[in-house]
Simulated scan of single mutants.
Amino acid sequence: MFKPVQSLQRGMILIETISARREGINLKDLAHAIDCSSAATYHLVQTLVDGGFVKRLESPARYVLGDKLLNLMSNENKDRYYNIVHEEMLRLQKQLPGSSLFYSEYIGNHVTVRSAIHENNPTQIQRPNNYILPPYLSAGSVVHLAYWSSEISDEYQQIYPFHMYGHVLWDDWETFETILAKTRKEGCILVPEKKPLNLKLGLPILGKDNALMAALTIQWNQSERKGLREKIRTLKQTAQASGKRITERLEGK
C-alpha cells in the first residue's frame, strides 16, 4: 500500500506557502503552515535553501523562492508563450492560404527570425538559423522600431544608421516616424513592395500592459490584381484579430 513520505509532503507545502508570499515569510509562520516545530521546520527549509529552491533573506530574516524554482517557472512560462504563438501562426496560415509567416525577436542588437511557416510546408513550424531581418525594410523590423523605447531604438540606429539602411524605402526619417506612429495606431503595418501583388504585413505581439514581446511578419503573395483591395482588408483584419487573441491568451483570458 502506498504511504506518502511525510517530509516530502511538508517540503511541498513549504514551497507552496513561500510562493504565495512574494515579500517573504518567516520561520515561525512556515512552522505553523506545516504544523511542525521551528527546529524541524528549519532543517526542512534549510535543505531547500541548500538545493537552491528557496533563498534566505536578512533584515528581517525571511524566505523566498530560490533561483532554481524561478528558472523552472520561467521555462514553463516560455514554453506556454511559444506554444500560444505557434498555434496562432498555424491558425493564421490556414486563414490565409499560401502565406508564409516569420516570428522575430530582438536578440543581441538584431531583429532575428526564431521560427517560421513557409507556404510550401504550411503545417510545419521551422526554426531558421538565426536569420536577421533587414533593418527598416522588413515589416518585422518596422514593428519592433515602432514599439521600442527610445533607448533601444537609439542603440539599434547606432548599429544600423537610417541614412545607410532605411532611406532606400523611406525618403527621410520624418516620413519613417509617421509610419511608426501609424503602426502603433493601427496595430500593424503593410510595408510597400516593388511588386504590388506581394503583400507583406508586420504585426506586434503584445504582452502585459501592451509591452512588445516580438513581431510576426505575414507574407501573402497574390497572383492577380482583381480583388486585391479586399485581400488587403482581409489580411489586416485577420492579423489584428490574431494579435488580439494572442495577447488575451497570454493574459489568461
Rank of each mutant, 00 (worst) to 15 (best):
E88I: 15
E16T: 08
A40Q: 10
L30K: 03
D35E: 13
L203S: 00
I246H: 02
E23Y: 09
D171Q: 13
E230Q: 13
R62P: 10
H167G: 00
Y136F: 11
W148G: 00
L169A: 12
A31P: 04
I159D: 10
M12R: 11
V64D: 02
P161Y: 11
M73H: 06
A61V: 14
S37V: 00
L197D: 02
L92S: 03
D79R: 15
K182L: 03
S153H: 09
G11Q: 13
L180I: 04
L250V: 01
L203K: 06
R114W: 05
N109M: 12
P128G: 09
C188P: 04
P161S: 04
Y136T: 05
V111P: 05
Y156V: 08
I246G: 00
R22K: 12
A215R: 07
G166Q: 08
K68F: 00
A20P: 00
T47W: 08
A241D: 11
T112N: 10
K244V: 10
I232P: 06
L90Q: 07
A181V: 05
L101K: 10
S149Y: 02
Q9F: 07
K182P: 03
N109L: 09
F102H: 12
G52E: 05
L133M: 15
L30N: 08
H43C: 03
A40I: 00
L206C: 12
K3L: 13
K182W: 10
A20T: 04
Y106C: 14
S149M: 05
A40D: 13
I125F: 01
L44T: 02
